[in-house]
Measured scan of single mutants.
Amino acid sequence: TTVHLNGVTYTFPNPEEARKFVEKLAKTLNLKVEVHNGTYHIE
Rank of each mutant, 00 (worst) to 15 (best):
K20C: 15
G38P: 02
V3D: 00
L5I: 10
G7L: 05
K27G: 08
N37F: 04
K27T: 05
T2M: 13
E34W: 13
V22W: 02
N14V: 05
Y10P: 00
K32C: 15
T11M: 11
E34Y: 14
H41I: 14
V8I: 11
G7N: 11
V3K: 00
E23H: 06
Y40M: 11
F21Q: 01
T11K: 12
E17W: 12
V8Y: 12
F12M: 01
E17I: 12
E17A: 13
G38S: 02
T28M: 13
L5G: 02
L29Y: 10
E17Y: 11
F21I: 02
T11G: 06
F21V: 02
T39H: 15
T2V: 12
L5H: 07
K24M: 13
V8L: 10
Y10Q: 03
P15W: 08
V3F: 03
L25T: 03
N14T: 10
H41S: 04
F21T: 01
A26K: 11
T9G: 05
T9L: 13
H36M: 07
K24I: 13
E43L: 14
E16Y: 08
A18M: 04
T39L: 05
P15R: 08
N37D: 13
E43A: 08
E43T: 15
A18Q: 01
E23V: 08
H4K: 11
H4V: 14
I42L: 14
K27L: 12
K27H: 07
V22C: 14
V22N: 00
Y10M: 13
L5C: 14
E34A: 07
V22R: 01
H41Y: 15
V22M: 03
V22Q: 01
A26V: 11
N14M: 05
Y10A: 04
L29R: 08
K20Y: 08
T1G: 12
K20Q: 10
E43I: 15
K24L: 12
Y10C: 15
A18W: 03
H36W: 06
T39M: 13
H41L: 10
N6M: 13
K24N: 12
T1A: 09
E34N: 06
T39R: 08
N6W: 14
T11L: 12
L5V: 12
N37T: 02
K24D: 12
T39S: 14
H36R: 14
K24Q: 11
H4I: 14
P13V: 09
L5W: 15
T28S: 12
N14A: 06
I42K: 02
K32R: 08
N6H: 13
P15H: 11
V8F: 12
G38I: 02
